[in-house]
Design a protein around this nucleic acid. Structure first.
Lengths: 212, 212
DNA sequence: ATAACTTTGTGAAGAATTTCACAAGCCTCC
DNA sequence: GGAGGCTTGTGAAATTCTTCACAAAGTTAT
């Protein structure tokens, strides 16, 4: 793969992820090639955007024909690092953690859940898929010993920063947070936050101020 | 409120939502004023960004002093349209829908869940909070009759577009989707999509290509 | 083999967003 | 009431991201 010299925009990465999803769909029904125009329509973007995004990483298409569906899928999986078997822990055994556990795409894509943690004694010890819920006290040690890559934070906002500090100290490398708070971490840690309140309020704003 | 002449960037709206969250916290502990610097640190952004964001809507601060916490909270609630009692339906009675139902901030902020729908006959009729799960067939009619504003889509990607088409025809105005697919809607409909796979793959990318 | 058609890859232009930097305003203290 | 210290509000600059537009290259048909 041509290494990205420039910093790649987050929006580009998000779109790559989307291209991959649709390419896999096309691959599944045996389609051989797809044009930037077709991908753009599927993903709700523009052909120029598709071509530009892909061009950061190399030139994968054939002029006059489009992109080879199967091969581009593989390339995108490489680019996105989906070849690895990332070690994931889920922190918080509530509904959100539960929803995540149910989510198939998780394991399918190489995200391997190696532990679920909760501080509530009633939940500790309960079965959870193949494993069981462990006590939060064990989290930091486990992260260190098992070289966990990613932690999914599904606990209340007030507890989140403290837990994050612990697992950062224990060597976590990336965090996906569902806690409605901004997390402070050292710059080498990758963080994504999904904030439902923010999304809803974005809709509320759109409904209120539309037509402007 | 000074009406926004310019189109307001989505990123700005997201930050407004975050400012509001922290301002409410400060208000709760009786803090009278907050500077753009303090807000920026809390929210993980820059003071200039805070001031610029707020300046789109008016000038709420006092030089030398900062922003009045309580008053700015109220203004932000107005701006974000959180005075309304938005009517919300949840489509899909699975784990994600369930997690949403559990989410307090929902009702707190004026989002009123008036119905939960599922096409699975086993789930239809089950209790759900105060109400019960209704059959998906009733969704479009209910949206029309009850003037539902927002639909939360928590069903598989393959079913999502069809349902969305129905409720758009029935007069829905905004959609929050958890289906990992891009939804096609007329331009006057507000749509937000939360895509867990995309977030995880963003982290995978960061872990793979960091240090560049 | 040629012509007509399609589609990529990409500099350059354009648009959007963030950051800078500083004048103006408000507060406090003496 | 004047000086000193903060902090806002905001044009302008810088940066980032998207769109344009077209040459180059491949395909298909004849």
């Amino acid at each position: 793969m041509t290494l990205p010299i420039k910093r790649i925009a987050e929006s580009t990465v998000r779109r790559l992820s989307m291209y991959l999803r649709y390419l896999e769909g096309l691959d599944g029904v045996g389609q051989q090639t797809a044009s930037s125009d077709e991908l753009a329509q599927l993903c709700g973007t523009t052909p120029a955007q598709v071509r530009k995004d892909l061009s950061f990483f190399g030139s994968f298409g054939k002029r006059g024909l489009g992109y080879p569906v199967h091969e581009l899928s593989e390339r995108l999986r490489d680019i996105l690092g989906l070849g690895h078997a990332w070690q994931v822990v889920i922190v918080g055994a509530g509904k959100i953690g539960s929803a995540l556990a149910e989510y198939r795409g998780f394991r399918q894509r190489g995200f391997q859940v190696v532990g679920v943690y909760d501080k509530n004694p009633e939940k500790v010890g309960r079965p959870w898929g193949d494993a069981m819920v462990r006590d939060m006290d064990a989290l930091a040690d486990d992260v260190k010993e098992k070289h966990v890559d990613i932690a999914v934070i599904a606990i209340p906002a007030d507890d989140a920063q403290e837990v994050v500090d612990q697992i950062v100290a224990a060597g976590i490398r990336a965090i996906l947070s569902f806690a409605p708070t901004s997390l402070h971490v050292p710059p080498h840690i990758a963080v994504k936050t999904v904030n439902m309140a923010m999304e809803l309020e974005g809709l509320s704003f759109a409904l209120t101020n539309r037509g402007e």
